[in-house]
Simulated assay, not measured.
Amino acid sequence: MIPMVDLKSELELMKEPILNAIKEVVESTSYILGDKGATLEKQIAEYVDAKYGIGVANGTDALLLSLKALGIGAGDEVITTPFTFFASGEVIANVDATPVFVDIDPNTYNIDPQEVKKAVTPKTKAIMIVHIFGQTAKMDSLLEIAKENNLKVIEDACQAIGTEYKGKRIGSIGDIGCFSFFPSKNLGAFGDAGMIVTNSKELYDKVIELRNHGSNIKYNHTTLGFNSRLDEIQAAILLEKLKYLDIFLEARKKIATNYSRELSDIVKTPPIYTTREHTFHQYSIETPYRNELSNYLQQKQISTAIYYPTPLHLQEAFKYLNYQNGKFPVAEFSSENILALPIGPTLTEDHQGYIISCIRDFFDIKINSTSE
């Protein structure tokens, strides 16, 4: 079976230095808030061209602490996309604010600036922009809306480390940016891990306090915080894997180019823009035969995935918001028609060719069966 994400093959490329790094941490007996974490914070901040980086326990906590640091809470509204992983909306509700969903761009699957503009109310305090699948949202338009309405901009860049918008890496473009290092991400740990970046010293100080039980001085707690600290073993692993990140991203782009060249005549493939660099955390095609194609590829020993089968506004947990089916037609259509194909830096040319061949065979069969 060709997996969606081949972590075993990736590990083999860097196994020895990673195991040595883990051993170094184990023998140091410094496991939390040590030198490895501090070094990773500095290197990630430099990588995305931000002044500050703060390691946290996971990507969800990165979003949650960002909202808290911005002072968003009860009575506030945060505009975001319904076409994303659940955490993007969940964290807004968990700070007692109201998630306000708006529809998406049918080409990039990112939040639609025109829909954002229409959704702003006096209660709106922030826009949470999700750079879905490794493709950036239209940042200029969104930043203009934020400026006009005095809104904060949170970048959910959990799927998009290394992605650029007009030459600037995302995460550092808004007020605060959030990354996930979940194992399957383009830069993945061996467990949960996350990072917040910002150019604001004030926000940096607030997050540093919030991630450590609301404390900057041991046993002195100035606010109610959280236990959300990036541990040293995960930091050590990520420091080693960061050395490979740009190489891996280039490999993903090469595979995506191959897919698009061979499949764009039979399915809708991800758009490529000169001003937006796609890093392909997922390579998602769009077809009305999504479920049939997925089943066919499964029979051919090819894994696929559906991101996301139910948009957030139709999730049971958000039933209290009273959104109805049909409210966001583009997001709903995308949820019913998108299929992610295997992509990863170690996906061989033979496997790519086999995947492409099987997809083309499926459509040949489909065309022949409908013409009979």
Rank of each mutant, 00 (worst) to 15 (best):
T222E: 15
L210Y: 10
T222I: 15
I255C: 09
R252N: 12
V207E: 02
R229V: 15
T222P: 08
K206M: 11
F248V: 08
T222V: 15
L239Y: 02
G225P: 10
N258Q: 12
L249A: 09
I208N: 13
N212L: 09
K241P: 01
L263K: 03
L242C: 08
L245K: 07
H213S: 11
A236N: 04
I217W: 04
S228T: 11
L242G: 05
L263S: 10
S260V: 05
K243Y: 02
D231Q: 10
K206C: 05
K254H: 09
L224P: 00
P270R: 02
T257H: 12
K206G: 01
K206F: 04
L249I: 15
V267Q: 05
A236V: 12
R229Y: 06
L224I: 15
T257M: 07
A256I: 12
E240S: 00
R229S: 09
I247D: 12
D265I: 05
A251G: 07
F226P: 07
L224F: 11
F248L: 03
L249M: 11
G214I: 10
A256M: 10
V267I: 15
L239Q: 01
S264H: 13
T269C: 11
S228H: 09
S260M: 06
I217T: 15
L245H: 09
I255G: 01
I217G: 02
R252S: 04
K243I: 08
E240C: 03
N212V: 12
I247R: 13
L242H: 02
A235C: 06
Y204L: 05
N216E: 11
K206Q: 09
R211C: 06
F248A: 13
N220F: 12
D265A: 07
E232M: 05
V207P: 02
Q234M: 09
A236R: 03
N220G: 06
E240H: 06
L238M: 02
N227D: 15
H213N: 13
K243R: 13
V207H: 03
L263D: 07
S264R: 14
D246Y: 05
V267R: 00
D246N: 15
K241D: 01
I217N: 10
I208T: 05
Y219P: 00
E232I: 04
D265P: 00
A256Q: 09
G214F: 09
K253Y: 00
N258L: 13
T223A: 13
L224K: 14
Y259E: 03
T269Q: 04
F248C: 10
L249H: 06
N258P: 00
S260R: 04
N227K: 07
D205A: 08
A235G: 04
K268W: 00
F248R: 14
V267F: 03
E232D: 11
R261G: 00
K254I: 05
L249Q: 07
L245N: 11
H221M: 13
H213Q: 14
G214E: 04
K268Q: 08
R211E: 04
